[in-house]
């Protein structure tokens, strides 16, 4: 087992502790943003665990978990927690409904994709992020070492493809950008906005640092996912581990209780607390 294949085990352990920590807060305070964060973090952890499992053996339902929760849904749900923290409840209810329906639809599309999985392509010697998708090989493009090449008809055209577990044009793959755009915008945007508010008011430096760490962690996984789309999937696991460490550190830093002697800043704390 390579060093890269060990990374998801570490991410899983960190995300398990992080998820329990956040859900405990939900059960004490009953604030919905903790619940949404907890759900998203649990999905992130499930995705990491699936990666760890797929580094050892094949199981199509573990792959289902990896793609649906790890690649598609988790960013949207974590980001939705930040939206619930920063916006009015009316909007949160509306977007929660859309997110639930969207997640169910993505799950339905993933279920539909299951009979068509090209399981023969799977090898435990490669990372799952490097072999999950079938990719069209453009003329003149060199295939990656060890890739399985085949010719197929796609949208009426004869194309050469690098075989992957999910067939070419699988509809569920089109859902991931929606969740990831929403997650990136709300999680990173929300963290940057919160950090900026505290920075502008010159109060609670721990929340400035905590939100900067959360934004950096979320960007780390966003960046690694983008590289995976471009065919550099070997950096995904490192990006996930960095994201898990930075976001958990950011959350702990932002949540650290700080004394406040003035009523004004205290209101700000309640408005944008982590």
């Amino acid at each position: 087992m390579s060093f890269n294949q060990i990374l998801p085990f570490l991410s899983t352990a960190i995300m398990a502790v992080f998820t329990v920590y956040v859900l405990q807060r939900y059960f004490v305070r009953r604030a919905p943003h903790f619940l949404f964060w907890g759900i998203g973090l649990a999905m992130f952890g499930a995705g990491s665990f699936a990666e760890a499992y797929l580094a050892v053996a094949w199981n199509k339902w573990v792959f289902f978990t990896w793609y649906l929760f790890g690649a598609a849904l988790n960013a949207g749900w974590i980001g939705h927690g930040t939206l619930a923290l920063l916006t009015r409840r009316k909007w949160v209810h509306l977007v929660t409904g859309i997110l639930v329906l969207g997640s169910l639809y993505a799950g339905y599309l993933m279920l539909q994709a299951m009979p068509g999985l090209d399981e023969e392509v799977f090898t435990a010697s490669k990372l799952i992020s490097e072999q999950y998708g079938t990719k069209v090989l453009e003329p003149g493009e060199t295939p990656p070492a060890g890739a399985q090449i085949t010719a197929t008809t796609y949208r009426g055209e004869e194309v050469t493809v690098v075989r992957g577990i999910l067939p070419l044009g699988t509809p569920v793959r089109l859902t991931t950008p929606f969740f990831n755009i929403y997650g990136l915008l709300t999680l990173v945007g929300g963290a940057i906005w919160s950090a900026y508010l505290f920075w502008r008011k010159r109060v609670l430096p721990n929340r400035v640092i905590g939100n900067v760490l959360i934004a950096a962690g979320a960007l780390s996984i966003g960046f690694a996912s983008t590289l995976t789309r471009l065919g550099y999937g070997q950096l995904l696991y490192l990006g996930e581990l960095i994201a898990a460490v930075l976001m958990f550190a950011g959350f702990l830093t932002a949540a650290k209780p700080q004394p406040s002697e003035e009523p004004g800043p205290a209101k700000v704390v309640l408005a944008a607390e982590q």
């Binding site: 998708g133 990719k135 069209v136 453009e138 793959r173 089109l174 950008p177 929606f178 990831n180 755009i181 990136l184 915008l185 990173v188 945007g189 940057i192 950090a195 900026y196 920075w199 400035v208 900067v212 934004a215 950096a216 960007l219 966003g222 960046f223 983008t226 789309r229």
Partner: peptide, 30 residues
């Protein structure tokens, strides 16, 4: 450092969102 980080991360976020939008619109192939 904090303002530079916030602006830098904002720019990277926009770039990543544009990329994801490119995938959705079929401009970026995968």
């Amino acid at each position: 450092i904090v303002p530079v980080l916030l602006v830098g991360m904002g720019i990277i976020t926009v770039a990543l969102i544009l990329f994801a939008a490119g995938v959705l619109l079929g401009i970026v192939h995968f």
